[in-house]
């Protein structure tokens, strides 16, 4: 399980729906991060957009800065 509070900007994370996001900023509340979509098989229009991503949706750290 990922400790969301430790995720630094630039970290790439895989989500439960198969998307990949890159952390933009982290309020360190342990629940949300602000992230940019790098890919999204569910909805390609999300790519490049910035959204709040929920901790429970994050499954794996892919790369760290």
């Amino acid at each position: 399980m990922i400790n969301v509070r430790t995720l630094e900007p630039g970290t790439r994370v895989a989500l439960t729906d198969g998307s990949t996001v890159e952390i933009v900023s982290n309020p360190k509340d342990g629940i949300w991060v602000f992230a940019r979509y790098l890919s999204s098989p569910r909805d390609t229009s999300l790519v490049g957009t910035e959204e709040m991503v929920f901790a429970q949706d994050m499954v794996e750290i892919q790369t760290t800065p």
């Binding site: 509340d29 629940i31 949300w32 709040m52 929920f54 901790a55 429970q56």
Partner: peptide, 25 residues
Amino acid sequence: NTPVFTCPYHGWSYATDGKLVGVPY
């Protein structure tokens, strides 16, 4: 100082202008 106020119970999150910006699922 914070960008958001996040409820630790179910995770609803509010911006500093009070708007609800994060709703899990």
